[in-house]
Simulated assay, not measured.
Amino acid sequence: MNTNRLSYPMQQALIKQMTKEAHAAQIFLSYGCWADGEGYGGIANFLYRHAQEERNHMTKLMRYILDRGGVPTIEAIPAPPQNPQNLTDAFNKIFEHEVDNTTAIYEIVNLSLEEKDWATWNFMQWFVKEQIEEEKLALELIDKLKIAGGDNATDESLFALDKALEEAPDSVSLPQEATADKPS
């Protein structure tokens, strides 16, 4: 008896997303190593923590496939892209990566709607919410660097940014949590 509750296309889409999350972890790890080598220990720490979060996302997908009776396969991941040229390049690439990941997650949500796979649709809502957070976090990196002076930032402002990101929380407030009393 077949106990796999996932269609073949859905299982393959989830495996593909597992691989994207593993690749994301490698990108953040790679950018963290670059930042560390450039003397940005706080930014590196932030990126290392984010690499672990991406591995956790991969594990959630793996566990879901298993719990639905499927068989997750571990695929090869591409090498991370070349090191960024500077912090502006790094933060812009992080944002672009998150937008690409959001698009991939939406494709799985759309497939779950087409298949009327409500369990997967429900499961993927966590990732939809997470991507709102991920994109906002990436935009905040870009904004913080702009406030510090962007490519023309002084050593002092880069030092302050590095320290701020070292201690920054790994999550951000979301619009769903806003109230008139606490708008942000």
Results as ranks from 00 to 15, higher is better:
Val109Pro: 00
Lys16Val: 03
Lys182Val: 09
Asp67Ile: 05
Ile43Lys: 01
Leu141Phe: 14
Lys20Cys: 06
Trp121Met: 11
Glu134Val: 08
Gly39Arg: 08
Ser7Met: 02
Asp89Gln: 12
Glu53Tyr: 06
Ser184Asp: 08
Glu140Gly: 06
Ala35Thr: 04
Leu139Gly: 07
Val71Asp: 12
Phe95Pro: 00
Ala25His: 01
Phe123Arg: 01
Leu145Lys: 03
Tyr106Gly: 06
Pro169Asp: 09
Thr179Trp: 02
Asn86Val: 08
Leu145Asn: 04
Leu66Ile: 15
Ala178His: 14
Ala24Lys: 00
Asp100Pro: 03
Asp100Gln: 15
Gly37Thr: 04
Lys93Met: 13
Ala79His: 05
Glu21Leu: 00
Ala22Cys: 06
Asp67His: 14
Val109Ala: 04
Gly69Leu: 11
Thr179Cys: 01
Gln85Glu: 14
Glu135Asp: 08
Arg55Val: 08
Leu6Thr: 03
Thr120Ala: 10
Asp151Ser: 15
Ile132Asn: 02
Ala51Trp: 07
Glu156Tyr: 09
Val71Met: 14
Trp126Tyr: 11
Asn110Met: 13
Glu177Ile: 04
Ile132Arg: 00
Lys144Ala: 14
Met18Ser: 04
Gln176Asp: 11
Met62Glu: 04
Gln52Arg: 14
Pro81Ser: 09
Gln131Pro: 04
Ala51His: 11
Arg68Asp: 05
Asp67Ala: 13
Leu158His: 02
Glu38Pro: 01
Leu141Tyr: 09
Leu145Arg: 04
Ile142Val: 15
Trp121Ser: 14
Ala180Lys: 09
Pro183Lys: 05
Val99Leu: 13
Val172Lys: 00
Lys20Gly: 01
Ala44Cys: 07
Glu38Met: 14
Leu113Phe: 09
Ala119Thr: 13
Thr3Asn: 13
Thr19Asn: 10
Tyr64Ala: 05
Ile43Gln: 00
Ser184Ile: 10
Phe127Asp: 00
Tyr106Pro: 00
Ala119Met: 08
Ala79Pro: 02
Leu87Met: 08
Asn86His: 14
Ser184Ala: 11
Pro175Ile: 10
Phe46Thr: 00
Ala148Val: 03
Lys182Ala: 07
Met62Val: 09
Cys33Asp: 04
Leu47Lys: 03
Phe28Ile: 01
Leu161Ala: 03
Phe91Leu: 08
Ile132Cys: 03
Ala168Cys: 02
Ala90Glu: 07
Ala178Cys: 12
Asp89Leu: 13
